[in-house]
Design a protein around this nucleic acid. Structure first.
Lengths: 200, 200
DNA sequence: GTCTATATACAGATAGAC
DNA sequence: GTCTATCTGTATATAGAC
């Protein structure tokens, strides 16, 4: 099981950067230093290769993140989640790019993968909503907040920061000022009492 | 110049929904009710057709929006801009989807189109920054705001809301609660004095 | 300007030797 | 398991009639 892995790795990389249609099996074969025919020995079809490759590249999305939040107060938990999200995204920029492109264009024949991504997204969103809810009940956050809506906007902003990273040039950049700005605005928006104002 | 336009229209639609690679000229020809050969009479190559089609579909991005903001106070201007942005996006959902997919995947051979999109984005961002700056100077907004950073986060959030729309299902939806939430959070974050709180 | 017919290239996929 | 050689379909692009 040596060549199979090389094929899978090359395929993931190429599909991720170029998309399904633009990536030929000849290209995959060349990159993996095997013959085209070998790809068909290991995988039923180009489609099968594609699904397998993507499933592999999706695995890391299943990080268990809950334990990392233990013992933190709600605001710290949210800020930690923001950092974790961006960290994960930075480390899996290939897969993220690809999945996002699946969302934006509505490529067919892989609804299951998309479903899974959306499901994970929802889980993440619910986690934030729970934290917000707890924060409200503890009196740390404003009582007027609607947890679900607030969480949804936070997630949207996170994705927006991500897209922005794609927009303004080189990708594997550091979080940049946008993430800081997001965290600052979250403090101002969520906390019941204004923070010590330790910026200027 | 009848068939040329039909070709262009069909091509734009197909390229936009399916992408460049997945769209064959046979498909374009069928959709436009012309022969494949005619496409090559009107356009040098598939590539040429692609560029021409996209240039056409990009035109509406050049909306002149400034006049619509005249006479409004800074907060109203920003909220208006938010609405206009989403409105424009809703009405050009095809092109937006496509352009976003260009940003996410880094498709080659059309750097000029991308450049133009990014430039427009920057212009929009600067407009918001200017308004925030004015708001601060007028005393309507908090004096501690950094206009550029604040504007960048707002744009990021707008794009995030857009992506979210793609994520959770049917696309040509109404703004939904996310935009309202964004505008609410902007009031809370930007305004110097808390608003009359006309929600609960 | 618009068509039919065709050239040429390359894609995914198979056959069969080793 | 891995290869070379090949089949088959379809894509872009051209030739030439009308």
């Amino acid at each position: 099981m040596e060549a199979r892995l090389k094929i899978l790795t090359s395929a993931t990389k190429l599909f991720t950067t170029q998309g399904f249609a633009k990536t030929s099996l000849a290209q995959v074969a060349k990159e993996a230093h095997v013959s085209k025919a070998l790809i068909f020995w290991h995988f039923e079809s180009k489609d099968d290769l594609f699904r397998t490759a993507l499933k592999t590249s999706l695995e890391p999305f299943s990080i268990d993140v809950v334990e990392l939040l233990d013992g933190l107060d709600p605001m710290a938990q949210i800020q930690k989640l923001v950092d974790l999200y961006y960290e994960f995204v930075s480390q899996n920029i290939y897969s993220v790019r690809f999945l996002l492109s699946l969302v934006v264009r509505e490529e067919k024949n892989l609804d299951d993968l998309l479903e899974r991504t959306i499901e994970l997204h929802r889980i993440y969103c619910n986690m934030i909503a729970d934290i917000v809810q707890t924060g409200c009940e503890q009196g740390a956050f404003r009582a007027t907040l609607v947890a679900e809506t607030e969480a949804a906007l936070i997630m949207a902003t996170l994705n927006g920061v991500l897209v922005q990273g794609f927009l303004d040039g080189t990708e594997p950049r550091d979080p940049g000022p946008l993430l800081d700005q997001l965290k600052r605005s979250l403090r101002e928006r969520l906390l019941a009492a204004p923070p010590p104002l330790a910026d200027a």
